[in-house]
Amino acid sequence: MPLATGQVRLAIDCFSLSANNLTYALLGDRLSYWSLFPMPEPWGMVPAWGFATVVETHHAGVAQGERLYGLWPMASQAVIEPGRINARLIVDNSVHRRSLPPAYNSYFRVAADPIHAPGTEDRQSVIRPLFITSFLLDRLVGQTAAWSSDTVIVTSTSSKTALGLGWLLRRNRTGIRTVGLTSERHAAAVIGLGIFDEVATYDALPNLSGAAIVDFSGNPTLLGRLRDRSRPVHLCRVGMTHGQDAGETSVDTPGEEFFFAPDAIIAAVAELSPAGFDIALADATRDFIDASRGWLTIEAVCGADAVRDAWTRVRSGKGDPTSAIVASL
């Protein structure tokens, strides 16, 4: 379709596929992820993080050839309507996106992006959208003194977000013991990374009364077993890597909370200032990207059939903690 005045068309260069995208799909209605890229019923477009290049522009502030990092549809092209623009960011002001959190409508201009480094876009596409949650959770653990516990149990430790959190806790939170939970199939790989102090499987849950739990699984059966066995001081619910919708995203149970990254970003920016937040996040992200070179293999998939097959693997939970998928159409 022809562009309207003020719109910009981009060719999507690449995007990552992970359990993070599965969470977007599972919470698409309740957290409005389907509103990012509307489709006629009964279809929905799953959003994905990656890079794109401007191929046509009807906006004076955006030049053809400029490259952006942000949240795109799993597609070959996208159209945005820039609203607020500065040297660092372009914010999409399309009508259907105005009510969404700023984090989802903001596109980083690669030429001025503090995290971007040439030759790392595949790793950025995989790590960057996940690691920001790791970064925010690490701050939360620090601010709460691990909810007055000396032990943090992290579920779904084969997920990249959980691995990022474990890596940050090991680096930043001296005196906090970390216990990673994963499937028997992934246990050896997670142990081999040396990120967590201890790794246990879902079939042999640890008995650690008084621990805090950061849950990426969204699995109510697992959480019930953990509550019974570990008597946690706090449960922080983050994601749904097990492909189940665990219920309401608002939690009224004492000692439990649902972690929503966009709200945490707003709070962190208010505390650190926008520039301070950018610097702290960029430094940590670049460090983790560099550290990942020793253990993370990137699998590139191209074309509709290959992307469909990769998405099927993500949905089935058959990912590998030491590999990741970057796709293009």
Rank of each mutant, 00 (worst) to 15 (best):
G70F: 11
L89Q: 11
I115H: 06
P114G: 10
F131K: 04
Y104R: 07
G61W: 06
E56G: 06
E121Y: 04
S18F: 08
L17G: 10
A60K: 11
S35R: 15
W43D: 14
D113V: 15
A48M: 13
L26K: 04
A63C: 01
G65I: 11
V110N: 03
L36R: 09
Y24Q: 03
G65M: 12
L17E: 14
N20D: 11
L89E: 10
Y107M: 03
P118T: 02
P40V: 14
L100N: 02
I80H: 06
L68R: 00
D122Q: 10
R84Y: 08
P101T: 06
L130W: 01
I80Y: 05
I115T: 15
Q77V: 07
F108P: 00
Y69I: 06
A87C: 08
P118W: 02
T57I: 06
G50W: 14
G61L: 05
H96M: 07
I80T: 06
L27Q: 09
L71C: 13
T23G: 09
L89C: 07
T23A: 03
A19P: 08
H58M: 13
I80D: 05
W43V: 08
S106W: 02
A111V: 11
A52L: 09
W43T: 14
L100V: 03
I85P: 13
R128P: 03
N20A: 08
V46R: 14
G70R: 04
F108V: 08
L68I: 01
P40S: 13
L27T: 12
H96G: 12
R67P: 02
N21T: 04
R97M: 01
L71P: 05
P42N: 13
Y33E: 14
V79S: 05
L27K: 07
L100I: 04
Q77A: 09
A87V: 00
T120Y: 09
R30H: 08
R109M: 00
F108S: 11
Y24N: 12
P82K: 01
V55A: 00
V126C: 10
G65F: 05
A111Y: 07
E56F: 12
V95Y: 04
A111Q: 13
A25T: 04
R98I: 01
G50D: 12
W34E: 02
V126N: 01
A63I: 00
E81R: 09
P38M: 12
D29E: 15
G65K: 02
F131L: 05
A78W: 02
W49E: 13
V95Q: 12
L26V: 11
W43A: 13
M45L: 14
R84P: 05
W72V: 08
W49N: 13
Y69P: 04
P102S: 08
